[in-house]
Design a protein around this nucleic acid. Structure first.
Lengths: 181, 181
DNA sequence: CTAGACATGTAACGCGTTACATGATTAT
DNA sequence: ATAATCATGTAACGCGTTACATGTCTAG
């Protein structure tokens, strides 16, 4: 449960929705926008083996009329526990600075696994971290932009705009949860 | 010149600004927001060795009054050529879908290396690609959102908002170039 | 004198990429 | 027939991560 790959968590999350084969998972990763994940067999089959070895998933060969073998995987009890623990662990400033992908992945499956109360708590924590980090970036830009060429300055600004977009998104997401409740 | 790491290009770009040592580069990567790059010695010294081996940079030991050795690197002629080629190669849809980081890195140093005309051309191409890709994501959301739980839908929407933010940014960036010209 | 910054490296390990390999089933 | 899709894997390779190793110089 130490240092697992994001791909592993993405697969584990998808397997929480329903049992799937490696091939099913590949198709989903290939066909979904936002798929910042690899859909190559050389990535996903080894990842499934690792999950199986950690006993986070269990594979089962489906006996069908055909000879074509097909292994579907489903999360084990300890796999579900590990997944929830990963999703609900506290958000650090490092997560916001270098791991926005991971944060979004953690959030993606929250309704199905830890419930909307945990999802709201996650969004509140994200808003908190962004509220403290965005001014840091703004300050950096203000003090250094004079020394930078236009393209460099603009590239940094684009990063700032991304953080601001996530900040706004998290706020509206929170309001949507409140409306639903 | 085939499949180089982003870190290598980031270092090469920084060395275009002025000769620097591995330690200098580390400090910059550690202290700059947007630094999605590693600042660990185990990443940057091997990366510099690779660049040296490809003859994209040359290291020179600075003789100072002290015994403390310090190697500063500067790009070679072929290093400069390779960097420009990488920056100005056409933007593909795959770049927009899976490689926004790389695109921003390519843009970051453009003023200093290929000039503002190339920077404007880059932004125009980026706008074009986004204009064709954003509707694809929107369509995906529209057709699949009904089947998704709220958190999953919101996560996808956050990706869409990111693309839209970059789109707006590229537009305003273009206008800033035009105003300056 | 000693903690911390300066400065450069190496080694084990994990994982994604690319390419290859194999075979079954369906559609043309 | 044969191409495309279904389906599962393996192997070489490159690179980043973490941790370790070594030594110098400066400030308190």
């Amino acid at each position: 449960m130490k240092k697992d790959s994001l791909l592993g968590y993405a697969l584990l999350g998808l397997l929480h929705q329903k049992p799937r084969s490696g091939y099913d998972l590949r198709k989903i990763l290939a066909g979904t926008p936002m798929g910042t994940f690899s859909d190559s067999p050389g990535a996903i089959y080894p990842a499934l083996q690792r999950l199986e070895h950690q006993e986070f998933v269990r594979g089962q060969i489906l006996e069908s009329s055909s000879l074509r073998r097909r292994r579907v995987f489903r999360p084990t009890v300890s796999g579900k526990r590990a997944f929830k623990a990963w999703q609900t662990k506290p958000i650090s400033s490092a997560d916001v600075i270098h791991g926005m992908d991971e944060l979004m992945l953690r959030f993606s499956f929250m309704d199905e696994t830890v419930g909307s109360a945990a999802a709201r708590e996650f969004l509140r924590a994200l808003v908190r971290e962004l509220r403290s980090y965005i001014p840091v970036v703004r300050q950096f830009l203000k003090t250094n932009s004079r020394a930078m060429p236009l393209s460099g300055r603009l590239a940094l600004e684009s990063g700032l705009h991304s953080y601001e977009a996530v900040f706004r998104w998290a706020g509206t997401a929170l309001r949507k949860y409140k409306r639903k409740k």
